[in-house]
Design a protein around this nucleic acid. Structure first.
Ligand code: ZN
Ligand code: ZN
Ligand code: ZN
Ligand code: ZN
Lengths: 156, 156
DNA sequence: TCTAATGTCTCTAGTAGCTATAGGTTCAAG
DNA sequence: CTTGAACCTATAGCTACTAGAGACATTAGA
């Protein structure tokens, strides 16, 4: 039996994240000690590692919920799981395509600047006028490149 | 003078988004009509187009705020603007690298599944065991591939 | 055994960048 | 003059967490 802290350490997940996963129903509510603290068995670790791995591969929590449900009764055909993974793959591919276009524009923009005053800056100029762009349609479609968030949702 | 609706149409931006940009100080508060409705001059359209273009290239709002401030007095050197654009470019590059690794894993996962029962599904199996992955370190580092969110923040 | 440090509990609010809704006012066409 | 569209404000919701407050539990050392 692991405390929530040990579980988090074992899975590389912060403690509040574990409580969050329980709250949204990804992890089963843990048993409690006399003093009301959560206690976890080994299968909880496996489940948490599954979640983390799927998150690291960019699956959104909704998709992970579905994958876990499938995992819970292994006699069904796996078509649903495969569909989720393929949707995820397509989302990643779409995103890579978008980002590659963005990279292209950003590179040109940065390269063409003569590093004078803002009034002559190519970066500012291009941002103010999309007609100066090479690819006329690099509308980012959505998505983040942030270091804060993780989702990767292909589903509608 | 444009109404908020016309401005939104002209820039390809939804009306609530314009109000949001005003609220967070990206757009100057608009003048109002007798009946308290917003009225915009042409320069507001230019500013909004600038914001949209930068957003489409993935710049986070904070970076755009800085870029707009630079644009507002054009006699400074443009080093700051170039630095923001380069940071953005690096963020995009990092993200592309990450996503390429994810794509690789997802492709393998999907390809190796024999489409039997969930109990034998390679997708489920790999998700449950990161050791089955080719790249040992595809931790997604963060970021989204979602269709909901847009950020791309390189700045700490 | 006492105590201090750490761990845990719940609850709330904040992050990014919008989007949606509710309930009310104003405008423009017919 | 009436109707419908567009507008106003304010609030809540979305993803996936993260951070904090204030209180209780556990554990190691003296
Ligand atoms: Zn420049
Ligand atoms: Zn462009
Ligand atoms: Zn399968
Ligand atoms: Zn892996």
């Amino acid at each position: 039996m692991l405390s929530i802290g040990k579980l988090g350490q074992a899975a590389g997940v912060k403690v509040p994240t574990i409580r969050y996963y329980e709250q949204i129903g990804l992890l089963h509510p843990a048993g409690r000690s006399e003093g009301n603290q959560r206690l976890y068995a080994r299968d909880a670790l496996a489940r948490l590692l599954f979640i983390r791995h799927a998150r690291d591969l960019g699956f959104p929590l909704d998709a992970i919920r579905d994958l876990l449900a499938l995992q819970d009764d292994p006699h069904q055909p796996c078509a649903a799981a495969d569909a989720i993974a393929q949707a995820q793959l397509q989302a990643v591919n779409r995103r890579i395509t978008q980002l590659t276009a963005l990279r292209c524009e950003l590179e040109k923009m940065v390269a063409q600047c003569a590093h004078g005053s803002v009034g002559e800056c190519r970066v500012i100029e291009v941002l103010g006028n999309h007609d100066l762009c090479v690819h006329p349609d690099h509308d980012d479609g959505d998505d983040a490149v942030t270091d804060h968030d993780h989702a990767l949702a292909p589903r509608s």
